[in-house]
């Protein structure tokens, strides 16, 4: 038996967001020891906090609304609390009953890999009947991935300059590729991915909240564009078209 920290970053602006989270938490199954960690990006109320405290072993606030920072902090905290692995997951997913244990088994067999990913499944109707394939492929899916202590030591932290989210995953993927690191997706470890849970949750808001959330999404779109632009500046091209092997094409990236 190993100890696994499951790390999530709650972002609750509507009941639907919490509903998705409930599905994720309720689907956790494992024969291993599980430590549930939540680094809060956004919640609405004391009620949301109480809801999280009942379901997680550690609930803390992120000091700023940056996903990369929550991941870095949560991963470090998971290992500080004694985890062998930290499984970082979106809240808009559901685990297949064998997902976590098969992912751990994959990690013991694919020891050279630095990241082990669960494979996403998109059709809820066929999810429980899905065949678990005895195969892995060199691929990264960031909706549900597991690491051990080596990731941050070898590849460094997720880049917190991608604010508030988006492209921090592509950035890590490129750095891992540049290192020649193995990152595998295990087809015996499936999760149901509802995809775009944040926007789906916002659409299901109270009528009075529509203008506020639309404004928020508009601002977010600008931030995502800025992250795209920063990625190109950092690596000399879009994901898949990078030209630099060191950030900004220099040995000493600007601060």
């Amino acid at each position: 038996m190993v100890r696994i920290a499951i790390l999530t970053v709650p972002f609750f602006l509507t009941d639907r967001h919490r509903h998705f989270a409930d599905g994720m938490v309720s689907s956790i199954r494992s024969r291993h020891q599980i430590d549930r960690l939540a680094i809060i990006n956004t919640v609405r109320s004391v009620d949301d906090r109480e809801w999280l405290k009942k379901r997680f072993d550690m609930v803390e606030d992120n000091d700023t609304n940056i996903l990369a920072r929550a991941w870095n902090r949560g991963i470090r905290e998971g290992f500080r609390r004694g985890a062998d692995y930290v499984l970082v997951t979106n809240l808009d997913i559901e685990f297949h009953p064998l997902c976590i244990d098969n992912l751990v088994e994959c990690a013991t067999q694919e020891r050279d890999a630095l990241v082990w990913c669960s494979a996403p499944w998109t059709n809820p109707l066929s999810f429980r009947a899905a065949r678990l394939r005895p195969s892995v492929e060199q691929a990264l899916f960031w909706s549900c991935f597991m690491v051990d202590k080596r990731l941050l030591d070898v590849a460094g932290e997720f880049d917190e300059m991608f604010v508030p989210a988006y492209r921090e995953d592509s950035d890590m993927a490129y750095r891992l590729a540049a290192l020649g690191a193995s990152c595998v997706t295990c087809h015996a470890a499936l999760h149901l991915n509802f995809d775009r849970g944040t926007i789906k949750g916002l659409i299901d808001c109270e009528s009075s909240d529509v203008p506020r959330f639309v404004q928020m999404l508009t601002a977010l779109r600008s931030q995502i564009t800025r992250n795209d632009e920063r990625y190109v500046r950092k690596w000399g091209g879009d994901p898949g078209e990078e030209r630099f092997v060191v950030p900004y094409g220099k040995s000493d990236p600007p601060q």
Partner: peptide, 11 residues
């Protein structure tokens, strides 16, 4: 591979 565990009772 050995790590593939099938769901019991769910073919």
């Amino acid at each position: 591979m050995a790590y593939v565990l099938m769901l019991e009772g769910e073919e």
